[in-house]
């Protein structure tokens, strides 16, 4: 048996890029949801959490429709920017970002909401802007929530299957991530290959969650 490492590399590349995009999007979004008094948040909050309850195929199906070359948006992107979304890595990335959004936003939102208001005010009365307070006071003091978001979003992307299958298909080197490779191998009765991928995923997932627990315990001690 020769193991093809491509699906594993692709899985972790996808998870890493997804997590990076989610940090950039998720922190401001969580901040907004946690602190805004706008009524829009009552619409946005359930939208963020929808991927938790919907079958991944639903999300995948609509992304597929939205970006298919026959749709307006898909056609527009392809004609004017030569960007193909469906059955490409970019498509996987968009699907993964949407699908893992609650795993990043919800822990960080909870972190913001439980953050002592008096510490934020202590920064404001020193003349510091909201942005400076966010980066220099709030975020450094809620590392456990940040790490939880980062690790959960990463791990969840690694474990993704339905969305990836819908949008990405099974193109080796482009969209064939580990979870798809496992499914493919099982269908072809190549159990040894499926087993190898599975064991790698299990090991890495366990290590990530183990480290997450460890970080959280240590950080809480320092702050408390």
């Amino acid at each position: 048996m020769t193991m093809d490492f491509n699906p594993l590399v692709l899985t972790f590349k996808l998870a890493a890029v997804t997590t990076l995009v989610l940090v950039v999007l998720g922190v401001p979004l969580a901040y907004w949801v946690a602190f805004t008094s706008s009524r829009w948040k009552y619409f946005v909050e359930p939208l963020i959490s929808m991927p938790l309850v919907l079958p991944p195929t639903v999300l995948g199906f609509y992304i597929l429709l939205l970006f298919s070359p026959r749709s307006f948006l898909g056609n527009f992107l392809e004609t004017f920017f030569h960007i193909k979304v469906v059955f490409t890595f970019l498509g996987l990335l968009i699907g993964s970002v949407l699908f893992s959004l609650p795993f990043m936003v919800n822990p960080i939102k909870a972190g913001f909401q439980s953050f002592p208001k008096s510490l934020m005010e202590a920064s404001y009365v020193l003349g510091k802007s909201k942005r400076e307070t966010l980066f220099k006071v709030i975020l450094p003091n809620m590392k456990p929530a940040l790490w939880t978001g980062i690790v959960m979003a990463f791990a969840h992307t690694v474990g993704e299957f339905g969305v990836v299958l819908m949008i990405g298909g099974n193109i080796p080197g482009e969209t064939r991530v580990a979870s798809i490779a496992i499914f493919d191998n099982v269908e072809a009765l190549r159990y040894a290959d499926a087993n190898a991928y599975s064991i790698v995923l299990i090991s890495i997932s366990f290590v990530m969650l183990f480290v997450l627990n460890f970080i959280n315990r240590k950080d809480f001690k320092v702050i408390g």
């Binding site: 510490l119 202590a122 404001y124 009365v125 802007s129 006071v137 702050i223």
Partner: peptide, 19 residues
């Protein structure tokens, strides 16, 4: 805004940044 008022405020507790 509070940032432009050039005040100083000492609270009952939770004053210092723990990190």
């Amino acid at each position: 805004p509070v940032q432009d008022r050039q005040i100083s405020f000492v609270f009952q507790d939770q004053n210092l940044f723990p990190h």
